[in-house]
Design a protein around this nucleic acid. Structure first.
Lengths: 358, 358
DNA sequence: TTTAGCACTCATTATCCCTGAGTGCTAACG
DNA sequence: CGTTAGCACTCAGGGATAATGAGTGCTAAA
């Protein structure tokens, strides 16, 4: 059954008032904004309550939106907030300044979102499933150290500097590289067995166990990349909001946020328009989130993989503002990963118009 | 003036009792542990209070150690806690499993310390001062992408994958590598001027601005490495302790911990024995830490550089336990960075005794 | 020097009461 | 029939008051 236009207007006022003030809103406040007496409003509010859109903290307080009320607000009543051009520009610039490795960027983005919204934020990377090494490169640094660079099929690159007790020649290293690339690329974590290593080690001859060392490193990287990684930021923002003045509540949520494995196993729901999704209170599956809201946005990592960035807060959350900012950041991230050349170079060296790149 | 042996014993009991219970400790509780009447204890406590080692929250509560009391306890009364072999083993193993890049290890170590102690922890890396690139390597991945690997004089390695709109040949890349290594190694951040890039760009001919792109990346890395980086973990542990049941207090400290720039500019005092240092309440210079204690331990990063790892908590902190664990972790870190070959390889592939490495 | 005893202090907790914001209901009004 | 004024009712929040009890300082005796 559809609500009357007037009921919707009232609901909307209640939600927005409550979001702004965190105080239950009473009939008088609304009658002031609408040209109706408080008694009329009370009747309407009673209806809205019966329909499950409003709740009373207690008999003699005003009304507060129920999760269902927020849901209706988010679905129908909320005006999509447009960020000013200035704001989007700032966000994108902040993203672009650091063109580091993927995970650093994501971490940074999480911090940014938290700062932007004043809520705790978290960011998850793809959760790739199976990853394999697509190439090994070994770079000789000096007689007894070298850098191993590995790249995966998902185009992530990791490196590590190794020091050795013995001398090492370019030839040895080249031989090793070839061996690694023939025997260990394209193999999943499980396929990289100790046997395989032993065989290769044998084939390499007197290489002091270098194969195992590099492959072990690769395995760690694979493990790292196969699992979603989690970054959280700004947990302390929780305490700014009146609903978390109760230390017990705050702590419960904060420990949940600090628990990376739990967070990373968060089931990711399908995104709506704008690539965002809003989960209100009990709509969350995780027990710890039952009376908080989560706003999510997904971003493209490339290769069809997706990551998620999200904000956690009380159900009384400024959904419009948060969703807008989150969406902007997520879009910025997708753009960042999707493009050919990072544009930071343009920023810093515009004085000479050498390259004709997109 | 030296305290009598008995006064010291009383002070020690008070400190340890208070650390354990967070309740002011009264004369009766002590008289039970010592063979003295409560009245005698009261007299002694009155003395200790006059000397500034104890405080009363109010007239009719027990006594609480003052910062000065904690200091005496830490300096003279506290028994250095030895971790069990099992514990040290666990800590070292946990550190060794992840033999990733330096900053990941440090981050991990911070998390570990927090978990070990149930207090928030933070970790700072060296804060190197001037860093320069010691070598560039470019690895051709396919026609239109390559990996740039840069290594600094402080032996840190960073990498990034670049995609290009145009094709690229091995020769071009080799040429670029040489050019980068001749013109841009050994230069500080300030010396890597746009002019220098323009000149090199010109020398390289039609390379689509690749020089600037790689050098820009290098500059970002340098900037990153020159500044101390900060990692914090386990802020939510704060809320577990009764002294932070007051949300205002908790929030003040948590925001301080979340403020990376502030934390990284924390002046690092000289370390004592065990490479640890305890700062009690007002001994801290930072205003925000005036009524919290900080336990620090320093670790060697190599090349004579040092990092710091620390724990933050109320002055009522289990100094012995925290210092012991922190020291163990810091030692583990130094060891990890100092040694020739990471021992993780041994762990996973002991089945064949191929290499003769330390 | 130690101890028993006693008067005193004061945070904590419970109880009570008042106030005021807000409600539901009813009856009158247009 | 929808709207409104009026009125009795509810209940959280805040202040005042009192009882409780843990702990103290001081004094006088052992």
């Amino acid at each position: 059954m559809e609500l009357t236009e007037r009921k919707k207007r009232i609901l909307r006022i209640i939600v927005e008032d409550y979001i702004a003030t965190a105080e239950p809103v009473g009939s008088k406040a609304i009658s002031a904004k609408l040209e109706l007496s408080s008694a009329t409003i009370r009747n309407e509010m009673a209806d809205l309550e019966e329909l499950g859109y409003l709740e009373k903290p207690h008999t003699s307080a005003g009304r507060v939106p129920s999760p269902r009320g927020y849901r209706l607000y988010v679905n129908e009543l909320m005006e999509e907030q447009r960020l000013s051009l200035e704001e989007t520009r700032q966000i994108n610039q902040a993203l672009h300044t650091k063109m580091q490795e993927l995970d650093r960027v994501i971490d940074q983005a999480g911090k940014m979102v938290s700062q932007l919204t004043n809520y705790p934020a978290f960011a998850l990377t793809g959760g790739t499933g199976r990853v394999v090494v697509s190439r090994f490169d070994l770079i000789l640094v000096d007689n007894n150290s070298f850098i191993a660079v590995i790249m995966t099929d998902s185009r992530q690159v990791r490196n590590k500097l190794f020091r050795l007790p013995n001398d090492l020649t370019v030839e040895q290293l080249q031989m090793l590289t070839t061996l690694l690339n023939t025997a260990f690329t394209g193999k999943t974590l499980e396929e990289l067995t100790p046997e395989l290593m032993r065989v290769a080690e044998h084939a390499a001859g007197s290489s002091y166990g270098l194969i195992s060392i590099v492959v072990s490193f690769a395995m760690e990287c694979l493990e790292d990349l196969e699992n979603r990684s989690v970054y959280t930021a700004g947990a302390s923002h929780l305490l700014e909001h009146p609903e978390y003045q109760d230390v017990g509540k705050a702590q419960k949520l904060m420990s949940y946020l600090a628990d990376a494995p739990k967070l990373s196993s968060l089931p990711i729901p399908a995104m709506g328009e704008d690539n965002t999704r809003i989960l209100i209170g009990p709509e969350n599956v995780a027990e710890e989130l039952k009376d908080t809201s989560v706003v999510l946005a997904s971003y493209d990592i490339g290769d069809g993989m997706k990551g998620v960035i999200g904000v956690v807060g009380p159900t009384r959350m400024d959904y419009a503002r948060v969703a807008a900012k989150l969406s902007c950041v997520a879009e910025g991230l997708s753009h960042l990963f999707g493009q050919e050349l990072p544009p930071a170079g343009q920023d810093k060296t515009t004085d000479d118009g050498s390259g004709g790149n997109a």
